[in-house]
Design a protein around this nucleic acid. Structure first.
Ligand code: SF4
Ligand code: SF4
Lengths: 150, 150
DNA sequence: CTTAATCAAGACTAAAATCATCCTAATTAT
DNA sequence: ATAATTAGGATGATTTTAGTCTTGATTAAG
């Protein structure tokens, strides 16, 4: 359907949440689930993937939980999504040369290549650090709006 | 999976085929299916959608078949895909305001908006007429390559 | 060393989407 | 009439999506 799955969406919410936590703060599944409105048991599955990919670090047992795995300014939106959904290909012919044998003469093939490139430009350019900053600016702006509505 | 479906892919192939036919030439399901390597019975379902959307015109009965429904330079890649897949939304929050209630404070929302805009720029800018032209240029270039490989 | 807390791993499931196929009906030219 | 074609809908296999649940492993602390 040319739409990101809940896996990808929830992964972004989770990583973004961890990125917004103070250094060293350990977050529990419960916290993340409630704050980001993701079903707890589903989220736990997603966190496993994110842990295996290194985007987050986990510790089991008492005082365990999750922290972000790398500096937030080194984690892009695309990387987060692909960590749980696998690599993005807008059409099968982008998977690899010859995946669709028509690619050698197909005039649509280069268009998909370009479309994907442009999409990646956007998803690669936003890091989790950027998004945390954006969030605080939106919050500030919303507070301003509220004041002006009096 | 953030990938166009076979419906969309096959629709593009079919419309492109019709766009490349000489004015007035009527094409049969069989011809289109063979030339574009799309399962015949599946294609027939897709042609129905394309007909209802006006992108192609059909005539039943003897001497019937399909022709393109509008000038090829007025049909974009995006329109063709959306005719069979429905409108494209890279994430649910793009469907409409409030579809995701977090959109008012979510820093990722504007990124999806931008990503979709960029994607549309590419898919809207290519018409079937462009693609037919591109195809003939690719063919010419491939023939050249072949000659030089001697 | 026991226990409570917490994540890891994988089995399981319901519903929907995907990718088709097939049959019957309607239409059209000859 | 008849042959050629598309229209429409029923059907179906497979995969994906979006989750839940249970059991096991690990850890800190008393
Ligand atoms: S766009 Fe062209 S190359 Fe890509 S899958 Fe379709 S036919 Fe193959
Ligand atoms: S990106 Fe933000 S607004 Fe869009 S669906 Fe996710 S949470 Fe909602």
């Amino acid at each position: 359907m040319l739409q990101i799955t809940r896996d990808g969406e929830y992964a972004v919410r989770a990583v973004l949440f961890l990125a917004s936590q103070p250094e060293g703060k350990i977050s529990l599944i419960n916290e993340i689930s409630e704050a980001q409105e993701v079903p707890k048991s589903y989220l736990s599955k997603i966190m496993q993937h994110l842990t295996r990919s290194g985007l987050v670090k986990s510790r089991r047992g008492a005082k365990g939980g999750f922290v972000i795995g790398r500096p937030a300014d080194t984690i892009t939106l695309r990387e987060t999504i692909e960590a749980v959904e696998g690599p993005i290909f807008l059409n099968v012919c982008l998977i690899k040369k010859g995946e669709c044998h028509r690619d050698v003469f197909c005039p649509v093939h280069p268009v998909w290549k370009e479309a994907q490139k442009r999409l990646f430009e956007v998803l690669d350019s936003k890091t989790m650090a950027d998004l945390v900053k954006d969030a605080s600016e939106i919050e500030k702006s919303n507070a301003e709006d509220k004041k002006h509505r009096n």
